[in-house]
Amino acid sequence: MDIAIREGLAEARALARQHWQALLTYVGLGVVLPFLLLSSEPIFDLRTLVAIAADPWTYRVSGSITGPLYLLGIVSLIVSGALLAAWNALLADIREGYISEIMYGLVAGAAYLAVNMILYFGVGIILSLPILLLAAFQPVQSYGIALAILRYIVSALLGSWIYARFCLVGPVMAASGRLEPVSAFAESWRRTRTAWPRLLGLYLAIYVLSGLLTLALLAPHLFILFNSAPGSFAETAMSVGWLLFWAAYFLMLLLVPAGLYSASEDRTTVEVFA
């Protein structure tokens, strides 16, 4: 079994043209709603984060951390649910309507989110072990910058490889209406067995491009924060820019795996009846 990247991206464009109304709905649910929820919490304001980073010893944030963490959990569940609901809308043989898709997305999205958190938390611990071991023998300052750069490169490579192998989990779940993700992880691993080098290159390119776009938005936003009053028109315009960026990123997370799944599904069908 193989997956052609060009064919997968063509399938993604076809799905976008065919289901553009559903995509707009789920961008509203998975991007706009979380954006508004996070905007309601002062700790997530960029001005607050810059102030904490600039003076972490004297700057104090009032209130409990429980509220922000609780809000982050809700937002993560909403985003995962919107992704699963959208994949169900794009890939299911018969659509059952938005209410059914959203209910499915919330249930399946919770399981999908939980397994992904366990997976990436485990990878994070593994990547942190070398730093902890080295810190036990000599001061971190003596190798901090080089190790940080190395850790960033390894994280990008390992993270992209993991995503390349498991990029089809959500589409596999949603296409068949599964509520448990374990079998979908196994199927994604099987379907990407021969295509993972190309998928790794694709997701590395997406990773680098997303990082560059983030820096392209962050630099002018920081300039505006340091040179304008809170609530200015320029700051509002930057918030709109971030919203559009996250909408585009959400669509990428949604459409690219859906297209790759469709390409692998078509190829599987050809192999079965060849």
Rank of each mutant, 00 (worst) to 15 (best):
A136T: 14
F137Q: 15
Q138H: 14
Q138F: 14
P139N: 11
P139W: 10
V140R: 09
S142G: 14
Y143G: 09
G144N: 13
G144C: 11
G144K: 13
I145F: 14
A146S: 15
A146W: 15
A146L: 15
A146E: 15
A146C: 12
L147F: 08
L147T: 03
A148I: 10
A148N: 13
A148D: 12
A148Y: 13
I149H: 07
Y152Q: 11
Y152C: 10
Y152N: 11
V154L: 09
V154P: 04
V154Q: 05
S155W: 11
A156V: 07
A156W: 06
A156G: 06
A156M: 09
A156T: 03
L157G: 05
L157Q: 04
S160R: 01
S160E: 02
W161A: 10
Y163I: 06
Y163V: 06
A164M: 02
L168T: 04
V169A: 01
V169F: 01
G170R: 07
P171W: 06
M173I: 07
A174E: 01
A175T: 03
A175R: 05
S176R: 12
S176V: 07
R178W: 11
L179C: 05
E180M: 14
P181E: 09
P181H: 10
V182A: 14
S183T: 13
S183V: 12
F185P: 00
F185G: 03
F185R: 02
F185I: 02
F185V: 02
F185C: 02
A186D: 08
A186S: 12
E187Q: 09
E187R: 08
E187C: 03
S188L: 01
W189N: 11
R190A: 01
R190F: 00
T192Q: 03
R193E: 00
R193N: 02
T194Q: 00
T194I: 01
A195D: 12
W196C: 02
W196Y: 08
P197D: 08
P197N: 12
P197L: 10
R198M: 13
L200Y: 09
L200M: 12
G201K: 10
L202S: 07
Y203R: 04
A205T: 04
I206A: 13
Y207H: 13
Y207M: 13
V208Y: 10
V208F: 12
V208K: 13
S210G: 12
